[in-house]
């Protein structure tokens, strides 16, 4: 085609408001959370750790389901495999903290061939198959005597640190992984790939006919999500530090990822984080209420699904027109076209 020559007519801004305030806010938050073990109580630090693990998982689940349309209920497969990769490498004498990136990479590598099986299926069949894969992984791991079989195994190599130093190191490791996962997701969504993922989220048919290689994009997302959940599994193993198939491969991980992504808002970066905050606030305040705790969670999920399908963050953004992590493209015309 011979387009109207608009070269240099426009420039693109990536955010509607000045990013300075957000960046200062982010820097303060990162600083505070990095220093948290030394400024907050140990119990709060341990709650924060569990919070970070959930943020990692939910951010990954949001990429899968919120963007690429893959509703996986088997992400616990990679949480478990990540935990067991750390356990295995630690048994082989490696420092458990060093194993975290290796566990993530291993899960990414394992996920790749799995996509060739899974991508034959769609919708509900896909979801069920992810669950089957998770259970299969659990059963296979449970047969390996070296890894403790069905009863589990303690992650070795952690006892040479003093209890306080260990807690601090665990906290920092979890926090760094969460920071990397959220920042990585942010930069991914700001890139060309981000636009591809947003197009998949909005309309897969149109994406195909606009030249998007849908299957490759989905495969990439699945591998990234597996690696992220693997990293979550690795820090989970270190923080527990007793690793057991029924615990690490628990369906509850996927249920929590789904719950917080949904109430926070699918298809946004901020949604799963907000959802995780809501989840932990509710959990801490309702712990004493027994069964009511679950009933209120369920009611909240239903209420959001019915009245606020874009999630709490979606509602907030629609009202105040602000984004904490802007990924959009805003056109500014430098010269008026005629």
């Amino acid at each position: 085609m011979t387009p109207v020559d608009s070269h240099g007519l426009i420039s693109i801004r990536r955010s509607t408001h000045s990013p300075v305030i957000t960046m200062v806010g982010a820097a303060v938050l990162v600083g505070l959370l990095s220093a948290a073990p030394w400024i907050v109580s140990q119990s709060l630090a341990s709650i924060l750790m569990n919070f970070f693990i959930l943020v990692i998982m939910a951010t990954m689940w949001n990429l899968l389901a919120g963007y690429a349309g893959m509703v996986s209920i088997g992400q616990q497969a990679f949480v478990g495999l990540g935990a067991y990769a750390t356990l295995y490498l630690a048994i082989k004498g490696m420092n458990p903290f060093v194993t975290i990136p290796l566990a993530a990479a291993a899960c990414g590598i394992i996920a790749l061939p799995i996509t060739y099986l899974l991508f034959r299926l769609r919708g509900g069949y896909f979801s069920i198959a992810t669950w089957v894969i998770a259970d299969t992984a659990m059963l296979i791991i449970g047969t390996i005597a070296l890894l403790g079989g069905g009863t589990g195994h303690l992650v070795p190599g952690l006892s040479n640190l003093s209890p306080t130093a260990l807690t601090d190191a665990e906290y920092l490791a979890t926090w760094i992984v969460a920071l990397l996962v959220v920042a990585g997701t942010y930069f991914l969504l700001r890139s060309r790939v981000g636009l591809v993922l947003a197009s998949l989220r909005d309309n897969e048919v149109a994406a195909r006919s606009a030249g998007v290689r849908v299957t490759s994009a989905r495969r990439m997302v699945f591998v990234i999500a597996a690696a992220g959940c693997g990293a979550a599994g690795a820090v989970l193993a270190i923080s527990q530090p007793f690793v057991q198939p029924g615990n690490e491969f628990n369906l509850q991980w996927s249920a929590e990822m789904l719950f917080v992504s949904m109430i926070g808002g699918l298809g946004t970066i901020e949604g799963p984080i907000l959802g995780s905050i809501v989840f932990f606030v509710l959990q801490q305040s309702l712990q004493q209420q027994g069964a009511w705790y679950l009933i209120i969670f369920g009611a909240l999920a239903m209420a959001v699904a019915i009245w606020q399908p874009r999630g709490l963050w979606g509602a907030f953004r629609d009202r105040f027109h602000m984004e904490l992590m802007p990924v959009g493209h805003w056109v500014r015309e430098t010269k008026r076209p005629k």
Partner: peptide, 15 residues
Amino acid sequence: HPFERMTVFENALLA
């Protein structure tokens, strides 16, 4: 089949 949550410009930009 618009990409509803993207801007008009982003729709064309993706293409």
